[in-house]
């Protein structure tokens, strides 16, 4: 399955590395990244492939959210289907 991860927080050094490392450690492959800084706020949207992940997806979602909070980032994980069904006919 594919999922969309969004990361928002105050810009600090190495956010991209931290989040992608977290994904890699869990067997989640980053397929595409779009990232920008808006008024010192870091915003990143990642499209990932989670089909090779060992953990149940719900657990990964909880873990990365908790990891985000520890790092001062708001991290959201959502199944790709939500976006597809909402925005495509």
């Amino acid at each position: 399955m594919r999922a969309v991860i969004t990361v928002v927080g105050k810009d600090t050094m190495g956010i991209v590395a931290k989040v992608s490392n977290f994904c890699a450690d869990n067997g989640v492959n980053v397929m595409d990244v779009s990232q920008t800084i808006l008024h010192e706020m870091f915003c990143m949207i990642m499209m990932v492939d989670a089909s090779k992940m060992q953990l149940p997806f719900a657990e990964f979602s909880d873990n990365i959210k908790a990891y985000g909070e520890k790092e001062g980032l708001k991290i959201h994980v959502m199944h790709e289907d939500i976006f597809n069904s909402m925005h495509r006919i």
């Binding site: 969309v4 969004t6 949207i45 959502m78 939500i82 976006f83 925005h87």
Partner: peptide, 16 residues
């Protein structure tokens, strides 16, 4: 990649 605007719209619908 999906449209960034669409993704942000969905997230703000749920979050806010």
């Amino acid at each position: 990649m999906m449209n960034t605007g669409d993704i942000l719209e969905t997230i703000s619908m749920i979050e806010d």
